[in-house]
Amino acid sequence: MPVLIAHTISEATEILAENPDATILNGGTDLMVEVNFNHRHPSSVLLLRNVPQLREWSIDSSQQTITIGAGVPYAAMETGAIAAAVPALAQAARTVGSPQIRAAGTMGGNLGTCSPAGDTLPVLSALEATIHLSSQDGERTVPFGEFMVGPKKNSRLQHEIITAVTLPVTGNRQGYSKVGVRNAMVISVASACFAIVDDTPRLAMGSVGPTILRAVKAEKFLAEATKDLDNISDEIAREFGEIASTEARPIDDHRSTAQYRAHAIKVLASRLAVRGTAS
């Protein structure tokens, strides 16, 4: 039976151990495009969609964290308690594809594919999310920064499945922006997530490098330029954006130009730094 359906995480890891070549399928919104376009011909598939555990999420109020199952669809992140806990994630989830894609696609899929244009990934990067992996050998966690290692490359081992993501619940000083040429259903030309975590500014950038990039110089600049992160001046915000744009490593492709992408990062970063503040 080439479609192997798991109903629990342990069943899934067992199947994967026995079928190391199986392609992992959850929402299908990435994999099936490749199959339909004749780019991939899976010989067997491990279906995770029917594992209820993967569709769960929970907030740990003592740790101030939220853990979201890899099978939670984007649509579930757009509103409600997940959106309240991680507003930037809700904003990112809302920009993924179409409503139909958001009903099927999952964060596990976004992580599994690990495209530099993956919409939720800048949020995971800025918030320094932890990725949970499970296999017959047990469970392990990897920080996002070590998880995504290249364009469409991650450090998941072949016999592991992505089970969940843990993010800090840090309050509302976070935001996500994505530039696309259409007002809906569009692949990111440039995206950014800005967040203040433990009074430290963070900025992650999507679609402007081989992986999601952290703008470490810009973060450092901002941390040093002001003590009042709720009151960033336009001038400081502008410089913050300019520094971030120098940290982007965009390329020219059919979706945009490197020059525009770097420019867009500058604008998004500076706008995000002051979004929701008085200025």
Binding site: S177, G180, R275
Partner: peptide, 16 residues
């Protein structure tokens, strides 16, 4: 935001 250029990407505010 859906009435602004950029739509749900929330790239701008009214003043921009």
């Amino acid at each position: 935001e859906l009435d602004l250029p950029g739509g749900s990407g929330i790239t701008a505010e009214r003043k921009h």
